[in-house]
Write a protein that binds this DNA or RNA. Sequence first.
DNA 1: ATCCTTATGCTCATTACCAGTATAAACAGT
DNA 2: ACTGTTTATACTGGTAATGAGCATAAGGAT
Lengths: 310, 310
Amino acid sequence: MVASSVAAELIAVLVAVTEAAPQVLTIAEGASLPSGPLSPEHRSLQAGVRAWVERQTHHPLGYVEQLYTFADNDRNAASHADGRAISICYLGLTREQPNAKDDGATWCNWYDYFPWEDRRHGSVGDSTIVQALHAWAEAAPKPSQIRARSLRIAVAFGLEGRRWNEELVLQRYELLYEAGLVAEATRDGITCHSDTSGLGLGLPMQQDHRRILATGIARLRAKITYRPVVFELMPPMFTLLDLQRSVEALAGRLLHKQNFRRLVEQQELVEETGIMAEPTGGRPAKLFRFRADILQERAYAGTKPPLARS
Amino acid sequence: MVASSVAAELIAVLVAVTEAAPQVLTIAEGASLPSGPLSPEHRSLQAGVRAWVERQTHHPLGYVEQLYTFADNDRNAASHADGRAISICYLGLTREQPNAKDDGATWCNWYDYFPWEDRRHGSVGDSTIVQALHAWAEAAPKPSQIRARSLRIAVAFGLEGRRWNEELVLQRYELLYEAGLVAEATRDGITCHSDTSGLGLGLPMQQDHRRILATGIARLRAKITYRPVVFELMPPMFTLLDLQRSVEALAGRLLHKQNFRRLVEQQELVEETGIMAEPTGGRPAKLFRFRADILQERAYAGTKPPLARS
DNA sequence: ATCCTTATGCTCATTACCAGTATAAACAGT
DNA sequence: ACTGTTTATACTGGTAATGAGCATAAGGAT
């Protein structure tokens, strides 16, 4: 009943995939996510986001879902003096990389911000990160805290026999933030107790936008394992390898080709077009198209896991 | 960047389970969910919710997560004239039913609001609902809309060979709302074209609180299948049947006893206390306790599905 | 002793999942 | 023409998860 008045904005994590590279739409030369006002003329928030994004990018948004609402006092430089600033964040998927650079928006490979999340070609640089994190863990005042931190590190980075979980994007970023290993942390006044201070992993963003992006990546990585949303990122026709490369780009790891194909086909999510792809040096591949008719049903019926897996 | 100023409030879906009945904390004699202000003195929203709830109920909150942020113009009577009212909703789990009726808060069985969601003793009353929904579908102006509506109905209610999906709580409520079969719809000016008008299924709530509750139930039902959160609702010691009854209460359907036990034990989520439960007419059951030590790890590591299934 | 009730242990078939092998279809170079 | 390279596609075996059932154990009540 008690409703305080606060400053609120919409923030969008807009994702596309081009050539096996996951892209996110940014402004301010890659330092910010696009944000817009909470316009009262739309019936729902969702509709507001969609309208605003489509007006800016001139591209239809295939899929939109709410991501999270952030309102942390200490992470948002834009907080009002009187109240709190709320960021209502959305995740949007769009087909192809739009050429619309009109208003200073650019598409950036999201692994520029999270290099450690791309493990398609091995886990390069992990040891440095883990070392620095362990230094931070050891710097905790109480033994119980040291243990707690070490456990968090081990779980997040798949150490000690655990396996890497590609959905823990946010947990990993938050660890690095708390340990002072990303630029935003030092900016926010977090001191790094280890001598590896200021590793400055990945490109920073303004305010807490990188955290929002991490949330979006995590959500999308989780989503593709149980909802057929990858197709929102694909062109009208694609080969199964194209599709696999896109999933791999999002998940940050490679998949078993044969099993991937079987999964896709037994899901009956695609159908042949009868057209063959351009030759690329090997046996030419069939072009497939997404079965839009099945989407309606699968869009919210929890059936089998549509894609991904090891 | 453009940040409009809006009215904002916190809303909590607080859940407990007593005697195989899922309970939700309400105010205004069951017509509202508890809501509080967006107090700027807390570091995060989460902390704010926790503090405010614990102060009101005098009970520790075992688990809190953000649910959704609603800001629909047409569903929220509390909208400002100038701007938009935002409801940031949280889901909270608490152990046992607190006796705290201090400030007019009462615990209500959530199936009072969603009778059709409880299928533990068969699907009573479904045919009436489905009939009324089909009447609404047929009343659509265009054939394509009729088909779309029929599909939504079939998916949501598991018709035509499909199976009931207990996580589609929100979809079912929204269908009933659109079809004018719940009291809120007529209140909001939605006319019901069929003669089954005003079925008035379930108890109504103020504003869009029933929709928020539906969202909470859906989320919780999904959550228990992949995170061990049920234990937040259990007393310190319980029998495996107690645990099963709680899961069944939340899921709204019965589970296979032996398989449930196998799942719980192979997850190593519980340990024996050595104590036996009070005799209840059959062979006495062992009392178990939740292994709090395992929680840390499982809390965010995506391992095996902890509970539920058919 | 017999029956009822609940607890608990075990089996079995089906299916999902993972990894590997084998073959097919194109092209480039010798 | 033959060989090697690349990519596509088919098939196979092992393991684990899942769903449904049977059987037995341990208590109380008749």
